[in-house]
């Protein structure tokens, strides 16, 4: 959770924060459940990202607006109430827009309510910042989350179905890797992305920590 640092961030930094430096999927490992569950295709991933973004933006904006009148004691209760409201709203919105997407996402739309990104943002950021900054931060986070979901969904759809956004890429003879659409595939692809980032970061900054990390065994 980012507490307000010593130097105030510019609005642009506020927006970019969640896209890269604190990417909820790849860096902060938040909201893993929907990330893995719905990322079987790029469309699902995008829908989930947008839905979460809607809830995140809406609730942080509201939390930020009323931040000065909410007593500490009922803070969390209020936040949960607000988040649950927006989730219910988005639930109906998706039903109205497309039943196919609604059924593909299933229970995970309602489970947005327990996505730790949202409560975390409300608690750590929106409750301490004015509405504009809160909204910018939320938008950045939403974009970061959507990008993370898409990165997962695209890989899983390409390998698992030979398609991207439903468009066939390799012709009818392509052998799909079914495992990618299945639960193990979700874990593997996210793990592989993290591996890639680990490798990339290490290449970028050749730190002297080539020694294996001294793990503490508790046996």
């Amino acid at each position: 959770m980012s507490l307000p640092g010593p130097k105030p961030r510019s609005n642009l930094e506020e927006l970019l924060e969640g896209i890269w430096k604190q990417n909820p999927v790849f860096i902060m490992m938040l909201g893993m459940c929907p990330t893995l569950a719905v990322s079987v295709s790029a469309v699902n991933a995008l829908s989930m990202g947008l839905a979460t973004g809607f809830v995140l933006s809406g609730s942080t904006l509201l939390v930020s607006l009323i931040r000065n009148i909410v007593p500490r004691e009922v803070r969390i209760a209020t936040y949960i109430l607000i988040i649950a409201t927006f989730v219910t709203v988005v639930d109906y919105l998706i039903q109205a827009i497309s039943l196919a997407i609604y059924e593909a996402l299933g229970a995970f739309i309602q489970l947005i309510v327990v996505n730790c990104i949202i409560l975390g943002r409300a608690e750590a950021h929106a409750a301490r910042n004015p509405p504009l900054r809160a909204l910018l931060n939320a938008l950045g986070m939403s974009m970061g989350f959507t990008i993370g979901l898409l990165a997962l969904g695209a890989v899983r759809e390409i390998l698992g179905a030979g398609k991207l956004f439903g468009i066939s890429l390799f012709g009818p003879d392509f052998q799909p890797w079914v495992v990618m659409m299945l639960p193990p595939g979700g874990f593997f692809v996210l793990g592989a992305w993290l591996l890639f980032f680990n490798w990339f970061n290490r290449r970028k900054t050749p730190v002297a920590s080539d020694k294996p990390a001294q793990g503490h065994a508790h046996v």
Partner: peptide, 17 residues
């Protein structure tokens, strides 16, 4: 197990457990 612990310098676990 003792050898693996030794390789990771987990001496206390070696002695106690």
């Amino acid at each position: 197990m003792l050898g693996m612990l030794a390789a990771k310098a987990e001496y206390d676990a070696m002695g106690s457990t």
